[in-house]
Write a protein that binds this DNA or RNA. Structure first.
Lengths: 228, 228
DNA sequence: AAAAAACTGGACTATTTGGTCAGGAAATTG
DNA sequence: CAATTTCCTGACCAAATAGTCCAGTTTTTT
Protein backbone atom coordinates (compact mmCIF):
# COMPACT_ATOMS: atom_id res chain seq x y z
CA UNK A 1 0.00 0.00 0.00
CA UNK A 2 2.46 2.62 1.09
CA UNK A 3 4.49 1.65 -1.92
CA UNK A 4 4.91 5.10 -3.40
CA UNK A 5 8.31 5.73 -4.69
CA UNK A 6 7.69 9.28 -5.61
CA UNK A 7 6.10 11.78 -3.31
CA UNK A 8 2.61 12.85 -4.12
CA UNK A 9 1.08 16.24 -3.72
CA UNK A 10 1.73 18.28 -0.61
CA UNK A 11 -1.79 18.61 0.79
CA UNK A 12 -1.44 19.93 4.27
CA UNK A 13 2.13 20.92 4.51
CA UNK A 14 3.05 23.62 6.94
CA UNK A 15 6.11 25.75 6.45
CA UNK A 16 6.52 26.19 10.17
CA UNK A 17 6.96 29.87 9.64
CA UNK A 18 3.22 29.86 9.26
CA UNK A 19 2.56 27.59 12.26
CA UNK A 20 -1.18 27.74 11.97
CA UNK A 21 -2.82 25.54 14.58
CA UNK A 22 -0.46 25.79 17.53
CA UNK A 23 -1.27 28.23 20.26
CA UNK A 24 1.71 30.19 21.42
CA UNK A 25 4.77 29.14 19.50
CA UNK A 26 7.74 31.31 20.07
CA UNK A 27 10.06 29.73 17.51
CA UNK A 28 12.72 28.71 20.01
CA UNK A 29 16.26 28.91 18.77
CA UNK A 30 16.94 25.22 19.21
CA UNK A 31 13.88 24.29 17.24
CA UNK A 32 14.76 26.63 14.46
CA UNK A 33 18.35 25.51 14.41
CA UNK A 34 17.41 21.83 14.25
CA UNK A 35 14.90 22.40 11.52
CA UNK A 36 17.56 24.13 9.52
CA UNK A 37 20.03 21.33 10.14
CA UNK A 38 17.57 18.74 8.98
CA UNK A 39 16.78 20.64 5.82
CA UNK A 40 20.43 21.11 4.99
CA UNK A 41 21.13 17.46 5.58
CA UNK A 42 18.12 16.48 3.52
CA UNK A 43 19.15 18.73 0.66
CA UNK A 44 22.51 17.02 0.65
CA UNK A 45 21.13 13.49 0.76
CA UNK A 46 18.20 13.97 -1.59
CA UNK A 47 20.36 15.70 -4.15
CA UNK A 48 22.91 12.93 -3.99
CA UNK A 49 20.58 9.93 -4.02
CA UNK A 50 17.18 11.11 -5.09
CA UNK A 51 14.04 10.88 -3.03
CA UNK A 52 13.46 7.15 -3.20
CA UNK A 53 16.96 6.07 -2.34
CA UNK A 54 17.43 8.47 0.54
CA UNK A 55 16.63 7.01 3.93
CA UNK A 56 15.41 9.03 6.86
CA UNK A 57 18.20 7.46 8.84
CA UNK A 58 20.80 8.93 6.51
CA UNK A 59 19.28 12.36 6.81
CA UNK A 60 19.29 11.99 10.57
CA UNK A 61 22.92 10.87 10.65
CA UNK A 62 23.93 13.67 8.37
CA UNK A 63 22.12 16.15 10.60
CA UNK A 64 23.58 14.64 13.76
CA UNK A 65 20.18 13.86 15.23
CA UNK A 66 18.35 10.66 16.06
CA UNK A 67 15.91 9.47 13.47
CA UNK A 68 12.93 9.87 15.75
CA UNK A 69 13.82 13.47 16.24
CA UNK A 70 13.82 14.09 12.53
CA UNK A 71 10.41 12.49 12.33
CA UNK A 72 9.31 14.66 15.19
CA UNK A 73 10.03 17.79 13.19
CA UNK A 74 8.69 16.46 9.91
CA UNK A 75 6.07 13.81 10.32
CA UNK A 76 7.34 11.86 7.35
CA UNK A 77 9.89 11.75 4.57
CA UNK A 78 7.69 13.43 2.01
CA UNK A 79 7.13 16.42 4.25
CA UNK A 80 10.86 17.03 4.36
CA UNK A 81 10.96 16.90 0.62
CA UNK A 82 8.05 19.29 0.25
CA UNK A 83 9.60 21.74 2.67
CA UNK A 84 12.79 21.70 0.63
CA UNK A 85 11.01 22.25 -2.66
CA UNK A 86 9.14 25.08 -1.07
CA UNK A 87 12.34 26.72 0.08
CA UNK A 88 13.98 26.33 -3.29
CA UNK A 89 11.10 27.70 -5.29
CA UNK A 90 10.70 30.56 -2.89
CA UNK A 91 14.34 31.51 -3.14
CA UNK A 92 14.27 31.47 -6.93
CA UNK A 93 11.07 33.36 -7.08
CA UNK A 94 12.39 36.30 -5.17
CA UNK A 95 15.79 36.22 -6.79
CA UNK A 96 15.02 37.60 -10.20
CA UNK A 97 13.46 40.98 -10.36
CA UNK A 98 10.82 42.07 -12.77
CA UNK A 99 11.93 43.46 -16.10
CA UNK A 100 10.47 46.42 -17.94
CA UNK A 101 10.12 47.20 -21.62
CA UNK A 102 12.15 50.35 -21.00
CA UNK A 103 15.12 48.42 -19.68
CA UNK A 104 18.17 47.88 -21.80
CA UNK A 105 18.04 44.42 -23.37
CA UNK A 106 21.77 43.77 -23.27
CA UNK A 107 22.18 44.80 -19.64
CA UNK A 108 19.09 42.97 -18.52
CA UNK A 109 20.00 39.70 -20.21
CA UNK A 110 23.58 39.95 -19.02
CA UNK A 111 22.37 40.47 -15.47
CA UNK A 112 20.07 37.53 -15.71
CA UNK A 113 22.83 35.27 -16.95
CA UNK A 114 25.15 36.38 -14.17
CA UNK A 115 22.51 35.96 -11.50
CA UNK A 116 21.72 32.47 -12.70
CA UNK A 117 25.36 31.41 -12.89
CA UNK A 118 25.82 32.85 -9.43
CA UNK A 119 22.94 30.75 -8.21
CA UNK A 120 24.56 27.64 -9.64
CA UNK A 121 27.68 28.54 -7.73
CA UNK A 122 26.12 29.33 -4.38
CA UNK A 123 23.38 26.69 -4.37
CA UNK A 124 24.56 23.71 -6.37
CA UNK A 125 22.71 21.19 -4.24
CA UNK A 126 19.41 22.97 -4.60
CA UNK A 127 19.98 23.17 -8.32
CA UNK A 128 20.62 19.46 -8.57
CA UNK A 129 17.67 18.61 -6.40
CA UNK A 130 15.44 20.68 -8.62
CA UNK A 131 16.86 18.96 -11.67
CA UNK A 132 16.21 15.52 -10.21
CA UNK A 133 12.64 16.48 -9.46
CA UNK A 134 12.03 17.73 -12.98
CA UNK A 135 13.76 14.88 -14.76
CA UNK A 136 11.65 12.40 -12.87
CA UNK A 137 8.50 14.07 -14.07
CA UNK A 138 8.06 16.77 -11.43
CA UNK A 139 5.64 14.75 -9.27
CA UNK A 140 5.67 17.49 -6.66
CA UNK A 141 6.38 20.63 -8.65
CA UNK A 142 4.23 19.96 -11.70
CA UNK A 143 1.57 22.30 -10.43
CA UNK A 144 4.03 25.02 -9.62
CA UNK A 145 5.55 24.76 -13.08
CA UNK A 146 2.30 25.30 -14.91
CA UNK A 147 1.25 28.22 -12.76
CA UNK A 148 3.88 30.34 -11.05
CA UNK A 149 6.81 29.46 -13.23
CA UNK A 150 4.78 29.61 -16.40
CA UNK A 151 3.66 33.15 -15.61
CA UNK A 152 7.18 34.10 -14.65
CA UNK A 153 8.49 33.01 -18.04
CA UNK A 154 5.61 34.37 -20.07
CA UNK A 155 5.90 37.79 -18.47
CA UNK A 156 9.59 38.01 -19.31
CA UNK A 157 8.99 36.62 -22.78
CA UNK A 158 6.46 39.38 -23.33
CA UNK A 159 8.98 42.07 -22.59
CA UNK A 160 11.57 40.44 -24.79
CA UNK A 161 9.05 40.33 -27.59
CA UNK A 162 8.51 44.05 -27.19
CA UNK A 163 12.22 44.62 -27.50
CA UNK A 164 12.19 42.63 -30.70
CA UNK A 165 9.19 44.48 -32.06
CA UNK A 166 10.96 47.74 -31.33
CA UNK A 167 13.93 46.49 -33.31
CA UNK A 168 16.18 46.59 -30.28
CA UNK A 169 17.37 43.02 -30.72
CA UNK A 170 17.31 40.19 -33.25
CA UNK A 171 14.02 38.35 -33.73
CA UNK A 172 14.53 35.20 -31.71
CA UNK A 173 11.86 33.17 -29.94
CA UNK A 174 11.71 34.75 -26.47
CA UNK A 175 10.63 31.64 -24.60
CA UNK A 176 13.35 29.61 -26.25
CA UNK A 177 15.83 32.28 -25.29
CA UNK A 178 14.86 32.06 -21.64
CA UNK A 179 15.09 28.29 -21.79
CA UNK A 180 18.52 28.54 -23.34
CA UNK A 181 19.76 30.77 -20.57
CA UNK A 182 18.11 28.60 -17.99
CA UNK A 183 19.62 25.37 -19.24
CA UNK A 184 23.09 26.58 -20.01
CA UNK A 185 23.51 28.18 -16.59
CA UNK A 186 21.88 25.40 -14.61
CA UNK A 187 24.20 23.00 -16.36
CA UNK A 188 27.20 24.24 -14.42
CA UNK A 189 25.72 23.00 -11.19
CA UNK A 190 23.94 19.90 -12.41
CA UNK A 191 26.65 18.45 -14.60
CA UNK A 192 29.53 19.60 -12.47
CA UNK A 193 31.14 16.16 -12.43
CA UNK A 194 31.07 15.93 -16.18
CA UNK A 195 32.56 19.37 -16.64
CA UNK A 196 35.28 18.78 -14.08
CA UNK A 197 36.15 15.46 -15.70
CA UNK A 198 36.33 17.00 -19.14
CA UNK A 199 38.45 19.90 -18.00
CA UNK A 200 40.53 17.59 -15.85
CA UNK A 201 40.01 19.53 -12.64
CA UNK A 202 39.29 18.53 -9.07
CA UNK A 203 36.91 21.33 -8.28
CA UNK A 204 35.59 24.61 -9.55
CA UNK A 205 37.43 27.80 -8.77
CA UNK A 206 35.93 31.23 -8.43
CA UNK A 207 37.25 32.15 -11.85
CA UNK A 208 35.65 29.15 -13.54
CA UNK A 209 32.29 30.70 -12.87
CA UNK A 210 33.50 34.11 -13.93
CA UNK A 211 34.78 32.56 -17.12
CA UNK A 212 31.55 30.67 -17.74
CA UNK A 213 29.43 33.74 -17.18
CA UNK A 214 31.63 35.75 -19.53
CA UNK A 215 31.42 33.11 -22.20
CA UNK A 216 27.67 32.71 -21.98
CA UNK A 217 27.07 36.43 -21.92
CA UNK A 218 29.21 37.05 -24.93
CA UNK A 219 27.84 34.24 -27.06
CA UNK A 220 24.20 34.69 -26.15
CA UNK A 221 24.20 38.46 -26.47
CA UNK A 222 25.89 38.25 -29.82
CA UNK A 223 23.43 35.53 -30.72
CA UNK A 224 20.64 38.00 -30.01
CA UNK A 225 22.23 40.70 -32.07
CA UNK A 226 23.12 42.65 -28.97
CA UNK A 227 26.86 42.81 -29.51
CA UNK A 228 29.14 43.30 -32.53
CA UNK B 1 26.51 -4.45 4.35
CA UNK B 2 24.71 -4.60 1.05
CA UNK B 3 23.52 -1.12 1.80
CA UNK B 4 24.76 0.55 -1.35
CA UNK B 5 22.30 2.93 -2.74
CA UNK B 6 24.35 3.77 -5.73
CA UNK B 7 25.96 1.22 -7.93
CA UNK B 8 29.68 0.88 -7.67
CA UNK B 9 32.08 0.14 -10.41
CA UNK B 10 31.27 -2.43 -13.04
CA UNK B 11 34.00 -4.98 -12.41
CA UNK B 12 33.10 -7.99 -14.47
CA UNK B 13 30.25 -6.81 -16.57
CA UNK B 14 29.66 -8.50 -19.84
CA UNK B 15 27.96 -6.81 -22.72
CA UNK B 16 26.54 -10.06 -24.00
CA UNK B 17 27.53 -9.12 -27.51
CA UNK B 18 31.00 -10.08 -26.34
CA UNK B 19 29.90 -13.25 -24.54
CA UNK B 20 33.36 -14.25 -23.54
CA UNK B 21 33.25 -17.40 -21.42
CA UNK B 22 30.40 -19.38 -22.90
CA UNK B 23 31.22 -22.09 -25.37
CA UNK B 24 28.90 -22.11 -28.33
CA UNK B 25 26.40 -19.36 -27.96
CA UNK B 26 24.24 -18.79 -30.90
CA UNK B 27 22.33 -15.84 -29.54
CA UNK B 28 18.90 -17.43 -29.71
CA UNK B 29 16.12 -15.11 -30.66
CA UNK B 30 14.21 -15.54 -27.42
CA UNK B 31 17.23 -14.77 -25.36
CA UNK B 32 18.00 -11.71 -27.38
CA UNK B 33 14.42 -10.53 -27.36
CA UNK B 34 14.07 -10.92 -23.61
CA UNK B 35 17.32 -9.19 -22.93
CA UNK B 36 16.16 -6.31 -25.05
CA UNK B 37 12.82 -6.21 -23.28
CA UNK B 38 14.47 -6.11 -19.91
CA UNK B 39 16.79 -3.32 -20.91
CA UNK B 40 13.97 -1.27 -22.34
CA UNK B 41 11.91 -1.76 -19.22
CA UNK B 42 14.87 -0.91 -17.03
CA UNK B 43 15.60 2.23 -19.00
CA UNK B 44 12.04 3.31 -18.41
CA UNK B 45 12.02 2.54 -14.71
CA UNK B 46 15.51 3.77 -13.88
CA UNK B 47 14.95 7.01 -15.73
CA UNK B 48 11.69 7.59 -13.94
CA UNK B 49 12.73 6.65 -10.41
CA UNK B 50 16.49 6.57 -10.30
CA UNK B 51 18.54 3.52 -9.46
CA UNK B 52 17.85 3.26 -5.77
CA UNK B 53 14.10 3.62 -5.96
CA UNK B 54 13.63 1.20 -8.82
CA UNK B 55 12.78 -2.33 -7.79
CA UNK B 56 13.67 -5.39 -9.79
CA UNK B 57 10.03 -6.37 -9.53
CA UNK B 58 8.95 -3.21 -11.33
CA UNK B 59 11.41 -3.83 -14.11
CA UNK B 60 10.12 -7.36 -14.40
CA UNK B 61 6.49 -6.25 -14.51
CA UNK B 62 7.26 -3.60 -17.04
CA UNK B 63 9.04 -6.17 -19.18
CA UNK B 64 6.26 -8.70 -18.76
CA UNK B 65 8.56 -11.26 -17.24
CA UNK B 66 8.81 -12.82 -13.81
CA UNK B 67 11.37 -11.37 -11.48
CA UNK B 68 13.44 -14.53 -11.33
CA UNK B 69 13.72 -14.47 -15.03
CA UNK B 70 15.10 -10.98 -14.99
CA UNK B 71 17.64 -12.08 -12.41
CA UNK B 72 18.54 -15.00 -14.57
CA UNK B 73 19.57 -12.72 -17.39
CA UNK B 74 21.27 -10.16 -15.18
CA UNK B 75 22.52 -11.58 -11.95
CA UNK B 76 21.63 -8.45 -10.02
CA UNK B 77 20.20 -4.98 -10.27
CA UNK B 78 23.54 -3.27 -10.73
CA UNK B 79 24.38 -5.39 -13.72
CA UNK B 80 21.25 -4.19 -15.47
CA UNK B 81 22.26 -0.64 -14.78
CA UNK B 82 25.78 -1.16 -16.05
CA UNK B 83 24.50 -2.78 -19.21
CA UNK B 84 22.27 0.21 -19.83
CA UNK B 85 25.04 2.71 -19.29
CA UNK B 86 27.19 0.72 -21.62
CA UNK B 87 24.55 0.80 -24.32
CA UNK B 88 23.97 4.50 -23.93
CA UNK B 89 27.61 5.48 -24.02
CA UNK B 90 28.19 3.21 -26.96
CA UNK B 91 25.34 4.73 -28.90
CA UNK B 92 26.55 8.26 -28.27
CA UNK B 93 30.09 7.40 -29.07
CA UNK B 94 29.31 6.19 -32.52
CA UNK B 95 26.73 8.85 -33.21
CA UNK B 96 28.92 11.87 -33.78
CA UNK B 97 31.47 11.65 -36.48
CA UNK B 98 34.93 13.08 -36.32
CA UNK B 99 35.44 16.62 -37.44
CA UNK B 100 38.30 18.00 -39.49
CA UNK B 101 40.01 21.39 -39.58
CA UNK B 102 39.08 21.63 -43.23
CA UNK B 103 35.37 21.29 -42.52
CA UNK B 104 33.13 24.31 -42.63
CA UNK B 105 32.54 25.59 -39.09
CA UNK B 106 28.97 26.70 -39.62
CA UNK B 107 27.86 23.49 -41.27
CA UNK B 108 29.66 21.31 -38.78
CA UNK B 109 28.25 23.06 -35.74
CA UNK B 110 24.78 23.16 -37.23
CA UNK B 111 24.96 19.44 -37.91
CA UNK B 112 26.10 18.77 -34.41
CA UNK B 113 23.24 20.76 -32.93
CA UNK B 114 20.72 18.99 -35.09
CA UNK B 115 22.10 15.57 -34.33
CA UNK B 116 22.01 16.28 -30.61
CA UNK B 117 18.46 17.61 -30.68
CA UNK B 118 17.47 14.60 -32.71
CA UNK B 119 18.97 12.38 -30.04
CA UNK B 120 16.92 14.13 -27.40
CA UNK B 121 13.86 13.42 -29.48
CA UNK B 122 14.51 9.80 -30.27
CA UNK B 123 16.06 8.74 -26.96
CA UNK B 124 14.63 10.88 -24.21
CA UNK B 125 14.76 8.14 -21.62
CA UNK B 126 18.41 7.45 -22.22
CA UNK B 127 19.11 11.14 -22.01
CA UNK B 128 17.35 11.42 -18.67
CA UNK B 129 19.01 8.34 -17.32
CA UNK B 130 22.38 9.76 -18.24
CA UNK B 131 21.47 13.03 -16.58
CA UNK B 132 20.44 11.28 -13.39
CA UNK B 133 23.71 9.41 -13.32
CA UNK B 134 25.76 12.57 -13.77
CA UNK B 135 23.79 14.70 -11.33
CA UNK B 136 24.24 12.09 -8.67
CA UNK B 137 27.98 12.22 -9.08
CA UNK B 138 28.49 9.73 -11.90
CA UNK B 139 29.29 6.79 -9.60
CA UNK B 140 29.39 4.46 -12.57
CA UNK B 141 30.43 6.71 -15.43
CA UNK B 142 33.07 8.81 -13.69
CA UNK B 143 35.83 6.84 -15.27
CA UNK B 144 34.32 7.04 -18.70
CA UNK B 145 33.94 10.80 -18.39
CA UNK B 146 37.55 11.43 -17.62
CA UNK B 147 38.84 9.20 -20.39
CA UNK B 148 36.68 8.57 -23.45
CA UNK B 149 34.43 11.58 -23.16
CA UNK B 150 37.24 13.88 -22.20
CA UNK B 151 39.18 12.92 -25.29
CA UNK B 152 36.08 13.25 -27.41
CA UNK B 153 35.58 16.83 -26.27
CA UNK B 154 39.23 17.83 -26.36
CA UNK B 155 39.63 16.56 -29.90
CA UNK B 156 36.66 18.62 -31.10
CA UNK B 157 37.80 21.60 -29.09
CA UNK B 158 41.16 21.41 -30.82
CA UNK B 159 39.59 21.66 -34.24
CA UNK B 160 37.40 24.54 -33.17
CA UNK B 161 40.47 26.31 -31.86
CA UNK B 162 42.09 25.92 -35.27
CA UNK B 163 39.04 27.49 -36.88
CA UNK B 164 39.38 30.40 -34.50
CA UNK B 165 43.10 30.75 -35.13
CA UNK B 166 42.39 30.81 -38.84
CA UNK B 167 39.94 33.63 -38.26
CA UNK B 168 37.04 31.53 -39.50
CA UNK B 169 34.89 32.19 -36.43
CA UNK B 170 34.77 34.42 -33.36
CA UNK B 171 37.24 33.69 -30.56
CA UNK B 172 35.10 31.82 -28.05
CA UNK B 173 36.25 29.16 -25.61
CA UNK B 174 35.87 25.92 -27.60
CA UNK B 175 35.21 23.67 -24.62
CA UNK B 176 32.60 26.04 -23.29
CA UNK B 177 31.00 26.09 -26.69
CA UNK B 178 30.70 22.34 -26.78
CA UNK B 179 29.26 22.38 -23.26
CA UNK B 180 26.76 25.00 -24.31
CA UNK B 181 25.56 22.92 -27.20
CA UNK B 182 25.51 19.84 -25.05
CA UNK B 183 23.46 21.38 -22.29
CA UNK B 184 21.00 23.34 -24.37
CA UNK B 185 20.14 20.34 -26.51
CA UNK B 186 20.05 17.80 -23.72
CA UNK B 187 17.70 20.12 -21.92
CA UNK B 188 14.85 19.36 -24.29
CA UNK B 189 14.78 15.77 -23.16
CA UNK B 190 15.69 16.18 -19.52
CA UNK B 191 13.45 19.08 -18.64
CA UNK B 192 10.64 18.09 -20.93
CA UNK B 193 8.03 18.45 -18.19
CA UNK B 194 9.16 21.95 -17.38
CA UNK B 195 9.12 23.04 -21.00
CA UNK B 196 5.72 21.52 -21.66
CA UNK B 197 4.32 23.19 -18.55
CA UNK B 198 5.72 26.57 -19.52
CA UNK B 199 4.46 26.33 -23.07
CA UNK B 200 1.17 24.89 -21.86
CA UNK B 201 1.31 21.79 -24.00
CA UNK B 202 0.55 18.14 -23.39
CA UNK B 203 3.37 16.73 -25.44
CA UNK B 204 6.03 17.62 -27.93
CA UNK B 205 5.23 17.66 -31.60
CA UNK B 206 7.60 16.99 -34.42
CA UNK B 207 7.78 20.70 -35.16
CA UNK B 208 8.72 21.62 -31.59
CA UNK B 209 12.03 19.91 -32.12
CA UNK B 210 12.42 21.47 -35.52
CA UNK B 211 11.73 24.83 -33.98
CA UNK B 212 14.16 24.24 -31.11
CA UNK B 213 16.92 23.14 -33.44
CA UNK B 214 16.34 26.17 -35.66
CA UNK B 215 16.46 28.50 -32.70
CA UNK B 216 19.60 27.02 -31.22
CA UNK B 217 21.37 26.91 -34.54
CA UNK B 218 20.58 30.50 -35.31
CA UNK B 219 21.52 31.91 -31.91
CA UNK B 220 24.63 29.84 -31.37
CA UNK B 221 25.99 30.30 -34.87
CA UNK B 222 25.44 34.01 -34.68
CA UNK B 223 26.97 33.92 -31.24
CA UNK B 224 30.08 32.42 -32.79
CA UNK B 225 30.20 35.01 -35.51
CA UNK B 226 29.12 32.48 -38.10
CA UNK B 227 26.03 34.26 -39.29
CA UNK B 228 25.08 37.90 -39.98
C1' DA C 1 15.23 -40.17 -29.34
C1' DA C 2 18.21 -39.30 -25.65
C1' DA C 3 21.16 -36.19 -23.31
C1' DA C 4 22.52 -31.65 -22.36
C1' DA C 5 21.83 -27.00 -22.01
C1' DA C 6 18.95 -23.06 -21.48
C1' DC C 7 15.13 -21.18 -19.32
C1' DT C 8 11.02 -20.37 -16.13
C1' DG C 9 8.48 -19.40 -11.93
C1' DG C 10 6.96 -20.05 -7.23
C1' DA C 11 8.42 -20.29 -2.51
C1' DC C 12 11.55 -18.54 0.76
C1' DT C 13 14.85 -15.53 3.61
C1' DA C 14 17.80 -12.08 5.64
C1' DT C 15 17.81 -7.28 5.83
C1' DT C 16 16.24 -2.81 5.49
C1' DT C 17 12.92 0.80 5.81
C1' DG C 18 9.30 4.23 7.06
C1' DG C 19 6.83 5.18 10.63
C1' DT C 20 4.61 4.51 15.57
C1' DC C 21 4.47 4.99 20.43
C1' DA C 22 4.95 5.36 25.24
C1' DG C 23 7.46 7.39 28.45
C1' DG C 24 11.09 10.57 29.96
C1' DA C 25 13.59 15.27 29.83
C1' DA C 26 13.27 20.26 29.44
C1' DA C 27 11.22 24.23 29.30
C1' DT C 28 7.46 27.33 30.38
C1' DT C 29 3.91 29.03 33.08
C1' DG C 30 0.94 30.03 37.15
C1' DC D 1 7.88 25.33 43.29
C1' DA D 2 4.50 22.46 41.09
C1' DA D 3 1.77 21.90 37.15
C1' DT D 4 1.50 21.83 32.47
C1' DT D 5 2.98 22.01 28.08
C1' DT D 6 6.52 21.15 24.75
C1' DC D 7 10.26 18.54 23.15
C1' DC D 8 12.93 14.42 22.56
C1' DT D 9 14.17 9.37 22.02
C1' DG D 10 14.98 4.18 22.19
C1' DA D 11 12.49 0.18 21.26
C1' DC D 12 9.61 -1.80 18.25
C1' DC D 13 6.91 -3.45 13.96
C1' DA D 14 4.71 -4.39 9.61
C1' DA D 15 5.84 -4.03 4.92
C1' DA D 16 8.93 -4.33 1.24
C1' DT D 17 13.06 -5.73 -1.14
C1' DA D 18 17.28 -8.00 -3.38
C1' DG D 19 18.67 -12.04 -4.16
C1' DT D 20 18.67 -17.49 -3.57
C1' DC D 21 17.16 -22.03 -4.55
C1' DC D 22 15.48 -25.65 -6.93
C1' DA D 23 12.22 -28.47 -9.27
C1' DG D 24 10.34 -28.52 -13.37
C1' DT D 25 9.86 -27.21 -18.56
C1' DT D 26 11.39 -26.10 -23.05
C1' DT D 27 14.86 -25.84 -26.53
C1' DT D 28 19.09 -27.31 -28.65
C1' DT D 29 22.63 -30.56 -29.61
C1' DT D 30 24.26 -35.16 -30.26
Amino acid sequence: MSRQTEPDSPETKRTASSGSKRKKVRPGRIRERNRERILMAAEKEFSRNGFGATTVQKIADSAGLPKSNVLYYFSNKKRIYYALMDDIMGRWNEMFSKIQPEDDPATTLANFIRAKVELSRTHPLASRLFALEIIQGAPVLKDHLSTTMREWVQARAGVIQQWIDAGRMAPVDPVQLILLIWSSTQHYADFQVQILAIEDKREYTESDFQHAADFLTSVILRGCGLAP
